[in-house]
Design a protein around this nucleic acid. Structure first.
Lengths: 148, 148
DNA sequence: TCTTGACCTAAAGTTATGTTTAGGTGATAC
DNA sequence: GTATCACCTAAACATAACTTTAGGTCAAGA
């Protein structure tokens, strides 16, 4: 199965210009072109794109993804490097998730805070509630959000 | 308690230039200055900074944080707006967490993949294992990573 | 035949989030 | 008294990751 750039764009919801940009950056290995220079994407390229999306969301830079793709092109001799990269990236993601949880706790607290303020028609009352008098789960969220 | 910009920078691990940048962008409400123009940070400014950090990690732009701070300055009449903002942001964070989980599954799979390849000294063998023959938890990670 | 649509390139432009630079003030330490 | 800090500003610079623009090819349909 072969896909044009437009088809891939729709399929994976990535703009055409982004796809060309990734190609220019060297993120695809041996991306096929037909006689008149038109890109032909195969399943392996789609899989590369799914990986790019994943690595980007893990906080990796395009340059490093490019380096990884270069390692892939060198074959078995770079297996350890690639493994190390993924181990490092796993740590990054776990760190990110912890931070996001803290963020969620802060936001959960704020949601409760403003819902209460909205009922009261003022911030004054809720602002004065001491931490230990907050509803239990809100207190927990607040405290989790405020640990260094 | 009062803090200089340098103290705040160390305390919250944010560079001095970033703090000045945030101030220029209007993220602090009534940040005090002494007679010679030197910034004096108070506890409320530190709390603002913690909130900024949190909102940034939730994916909010500086401009929107600034708008929020403006609402704060308008007092009780903007409580609903602020509540809506946090509700929206909560959804954003929940979406982000789902994406990160998917990312983590992909990376977990890749870690296993390259650890196996490393033992084999080649990718060839592991590459050929069909999904349903993978170790159970790896199979689960793979599948979770590949659901649209 | 002509026009439309999907593709192409190279290069310039955009946006967000800072950082760096160059030049200046004012208190304190040697 | 002069050198060194820690602070200040305005403005230029940096970087990543795209997007837009301007100009061109090529095949298919009216």
């Amino acid at each position: 199965m072969e896909y044009s750039i437009g088809e891939v764009a729709k399929l994976l919801n990535i703009s055409i210009s982004t796809l060309r940009f990734y190609d220019k950056e060297g993120l695809f290995l041996n991306l096929e072109r037909d006689a008149s220079g038109i890109r032909k994407f195969h399943e392996k390229d789609l899989e590369t794109l799914r990986l790019i999306t994943c690595l980007k969301s893990s906080g990796m830079k395009i340059k490093d993804i490019k380096e990884f793709m270069h390692w892939v092109s060198l074959g078995d001799q770079t297996i350890s490097k690639r493994k190390e990269m993924f181990l490092k990236q796993k740590e990054m993601v776990e760190k990110k998730m912890l931070e996001l949880e803290k963020t969620l706790n802060m936001i959960t607290f704020k949601c409760w805070y403003y819902e209460t303020a909205e009922k009261d028609q003022t911030e004054e009352k809720v602002k004065k509630i001491p931490v230990d008098k907050l509803p239990k789960e809100i207190q927990m969220a607040y405290e989790k959000a405020h640990t260094s």
